[in-house]
Design a protein around this nucleic acid. Sequence first.
DNA 1: CATTTTATCCAAAACGTTTTGGAATTTTAC
DNA 2: GTAAAATTCCAAAACGTTTTGGATAAAATG
Lengths: 338, 338
Amino acid sequence: MKKITIRDVARKTGLSITTVSRALDGYDDVAEETRATVVSTAQKMGYIPNRAARQLRRQQAETIGYIIPVHTVGFADPFFSEFIAGLGDEISSQNYDLLVTSAPPASEEERTQYTRWIQSGKVDGIIVNRVRLQDWRLQYLARTKTPHVSMERSLDPINFIGIETDVTSGMLELITHLTNAGHKRIAYIGGDSQLKIEQDRFQAYLAGLSAAHLSFRPEMTTQADLTSEGGYQSAIRLLSQSKPPTAIVCINDLTAIGAMHACHDHHLKVGHDIAVAGFDGIADTAHTQPPLTTLDQPVYDIARQLVRMLLSMIHNETLSEKQVMVKPNLLIRASTNG
Amino acid sequence: MKKITIRDVARKTGLSITTVSRALDGYDDVAEETRATVVSTAQKMGYIPNRAARQLRRQQAETIGYIIPVHTVGFADPFFSEFIAGLGDEISSQNYDLLVTSAPPASEEERTQYTRWIQSGKVDGIIVNRVRLQDWRLQYLARTKTPHVSMERSLDPINFIGIETDVTSGMLELITHLTNAGHKRIAYIGGDSQLKIEQDRFQAYLAGLSAAHLSFRPEMTTQADLTSEGGYQSAIRLLSQSKPPTAIVCINDLTAIGAMHACHDHHLKVGHDIAVAGFDGIADTAHTQPPLTTLDQPVYDIARQLVRMLLSMIHNETLSEKQVMVKPNLLIRASTNG
DNA sequence: CATTTTATCCAAAACGTTTTGGAATTTTAC
DNA sequence: GTAAAATTCCAAAACGTTTTGGATAAAATG
């Protein structure tokens, strides 16, 4: 199975390489008739342009990169599957490709991955996620003028392009829902304090409390690592206090799943004796026992839209909206509403 | 931030492009001393070879591809996250890259994705998953002599290279565990009958029944789609019969999670009134309510080993083992052992 | 000392595209 | 009927590497 090059197509059609190339690329300086024959014979011969050659000449990779920011080997947050699926679908629908790898946040490995991809021209743009408060990635991308979009902004004064979730309004709605049900001791299980989502969600939790005229109690908050196991351990600690919480708000769904497990081990019936809520809206939460109340983000759609924004930046088109804000959707289920 | 090419390094060191290239690639026809200066100035200047140029010349992409075989938009099976993480980690540790996209199984889109990547030379090899009984992908890959490895073999007489799970022994263990607990009406929720894993797991289920001297009852099996929602619907159907099952074995964990939810809606206490078991061993299953009994596959490690096999094929090394069989590990938890 | 071997280096070709800057032909305008 | 404009095509350069096939100088051999 020899590879078919543009030269073969040129020979077959009796035209020059130039004309074949331009015919296929839809330039208007080639006659309709010749274009038709070129297109059909190219199709018939199964010609597909060599990517490396095209990239080299065009100085474009037609590829965008995403590095999954995860430390544990064998991570399994469905959030990422959904996100990657969204990226992949939109990217390939635009005839681009998606390069993926994973690297622990803020590690040396992360740094070499980013620089390798960008310096070697393997990618034209980058999608960033799980932004840290001080994040060298955004600084580096800005400095090298690499097109990028992100799901959160950092603290650095770099102009942000991407999509954010309106955590404050969502969290307010959730806490109101809980206080309406009479909850007074509402705990919070968060993540690494360097994470922007942690800051956002924790601040929103505080705002929610104060809106409900509840005072903040340090012993009602703990930090986990965004996994079920972390949620389980943190919830165990919260529940072992003399005055345990009656509701637990979690930074994400995985944490909440672990927290529900911990409640059960403490012989508390989730939804009756204690309320638990998550954040993200991953698919399984509809089928946990009990089904989990969560602030649903349209992760798949966010991913697709991020790609659209990034690609129009790469193509030097002007963005209609550089900063998009989406409202999460509060899904009230049995875990807070037994 | 101009891109630094090999020409710049050559100029700086006063050497030729050739020598710089060969120095960096470790050829032995360059003096130790010059190599040292080349390496250090290249490093200092931040030179990273352009990937497109290198690929074009070498006729190698140093990239391998994986197409997630999934139909629903916004899939979220943690199985895939874990698999992709394994692929990505091993691949980047060998200085290769991983190209990812998704396409519905057996769709036209799938076909164009595969051919586009392979014909255009974007990837040197492919990882295949969720093989169908008749699978054009394996035929195509064999025909085009594209290096590939897979997690299941198809029926076609193509010599298989990859890693399989020993479903039969695992399933036997599981069914024995259930019959020992006195279960006689053991149901099975499967997936698309074209899938190799469906055939394997269903056959293993039948073998397990007959080993326990239980007769197969068609009304005890149903087909879902490997999602929680599908598992829920299928289980509802099973439970609505006049003589419902006392145990349900599921093709994967997601299905089992949905099935547990259905049991709960039927006011059956999972682990007491009915047993439910899954397959895959995704991380959350430790924290479902109740924790799920499952046949755990070391997905992350399988992914890494698949990559190692694929890369040695690409490098024309001889494989010590072309066909590896791994035993799943039966994790007995409360869902069958209340 | 002349010849061969070894150790270093390099010029030029090649990989398969896209793009530039015309050239040749045909059509339109006057 | 001639000049200008439009249409259609193409040769050659360029993208940044790696590799081939020597060239040169130094060392070893006789």
